[in-house]
Design a protein around this nucleic acid. Sequence first.
DNA 1: CTTACATTTCAACAGATGTTGAAACAGGAG
DNA 2: CTCCTGTTTCAACATCTGTTGAAATGTAAG
Lengths: 268, 268
Amino acid sequence: MRKRLERIALPAALTPEAGPVHNHGSPHAEDTPLSARKKSPPLKTDRRTAILDAAEVEFSAHGFDGVTLRTIAKRAEVDVALPHYYFGSKENLFVAVFDRRAKVLNDLRETALIDAIAAARPEAPTVEAIIRAYVEPLFKGPHLKEPGWNSYYALVAYVNNTPGWGGRLMTEHFDPLIRKFLDALRLALPGMNERDLFWGYHCFSGALTLGLAQTGRIDTLSNGLVHSNDLADACEHMVPFITGGFEAARRAAPAAKARPTRVKSSAH
Amino acid sequence: MRKRLERIALPAALTPEAGPVHNHGSPHAEDTPLSARKKSPPLKTDRRTAILDAAEVEFSAHGFDGVTLRTIAKRAEVDVALPHYYFGSKENLFVAVFDRRAKVLNDLRETALIDAIAAARPEAPTVEAIIRAYVEPLFKGPHLKEPGWNSYYALVAYVNNTPGWGGRLMTEHFDPLIRKFLDALRLALPGMNERDLFWGYHCFSGALTLGLAQTGRIDTLSNGLVHSNDLADACEHMVPFITGGFEAARRAAPAAKARPTRVKSSAH
DNA sequence: CTTACATTTCAACAGATGTTGAAACAGGAG
DNA sequence: CTCCTGTTTCAACATCTGTTGAAATGTAAG
């Protein structure tokens, strides 16, 4: 039976860097095989990360089900059996790809947030400073020279828009950081309704996700005036837009506070 | 060879309602088979729309490659060969599903826009009125009683976030309407930089897309305070947020006008 | 009835898919 | 050298995939 990505769950696959899965021992405890770490550069390129790189490109372009292990293996110039040797299954490979860069991203953004808060002391940071700390590391970080990041961003967008297991993956990897940003926003937006805050984040997250996806839609729409893959430009425009959104949402808050969902009657 | 959704293109599949593809004549020129239209209700449920409904649910939940024609056929309680009889191929079926509700949506939103402009005459409509005309028909229209629409929205979100053929599908179906809204926004935001306008729309589109996807992410994040499938609530919060975003983007415009992408030097 | 055509079923095709076990290879240790 | 262990290759498996042709069924008209 062909298995589907239903409960991609987390059986050891989410714990950072499980080595070869089925076979004999556990050859490497970190990122690279033992043989590649004991004695300087091993000349032979590291197949494991080659597979991760290839899978990243393919998964981000075609989704989980749109990609064949044979396609990945071919791109990585590697035998079809190798992905299974290193990752055990297609699902585990996907999760490994998603894992790999998530921590880097979270660290970058957390320090940016801490810096923004420190810079504003003893005042609360501005909304703009918080939004910028959330967005700028993604769109302007020095890591972007490495080309794999563009694929990874598209992959995150894909996962974020995938109902079911996609949401679970996002929650596990990014919710802790998101909560810290929401805490900072509460400081910057005193008196803001909690529900308004979450809906505001929802809008923010959507804008960010589409920005990361770099689908080229806006290139067509604007007749080439703007380019969705110009991440620095996207960042510079997204920050004031989202900032204005949050501030407007707070202004509109008192009116929306009482009603649970929607009430439009004018009289009492 | 297993074909992928690469150039989903438009060979007759995009022209509204092509009938059975391979076989004999062309039995029905519109939405329902001839037999079902000539003599009142034909008792036997219409298999063609049953297939469309089933495909809508499956494609929106698992994407193009995550779905089997056999799964669709089973859900529609129909033989595997029937989808091919009516639509010719899996790709055509997907496009047919996407087509079906697009026109309804565009009509609803275009009239909402026209109404908003008419209501403001002779003044220009407010930004909020335009955003509301863009969003409200999607989130509060009376058509939402029919359950298929939720799947369709998720499908649109999926297509919008799919690089390549997804963008092409979106462009063909929705760009004409989008341009009309952009024209209205230009009236409501005089002096706004064109590039800022497009980037603003980009943020808007992202927020809207995630709202339509109803992934449930925000339910988890907010510990159940808000629900992503409460479309009316989403609408009421999205409108002020996006409105504020556009207005803030216009305020920030003069500073960003001169620089082509990013300039941060303080001295000349 | 017969005829004609639309719809539906059935069984099969050719190829692709994730996965696996066994064998081959590499390289350092004893 | 042999032995051990981690890595890589090879060939195959069972199943699933989109698609198709032919036969069966239904339906309305002549």
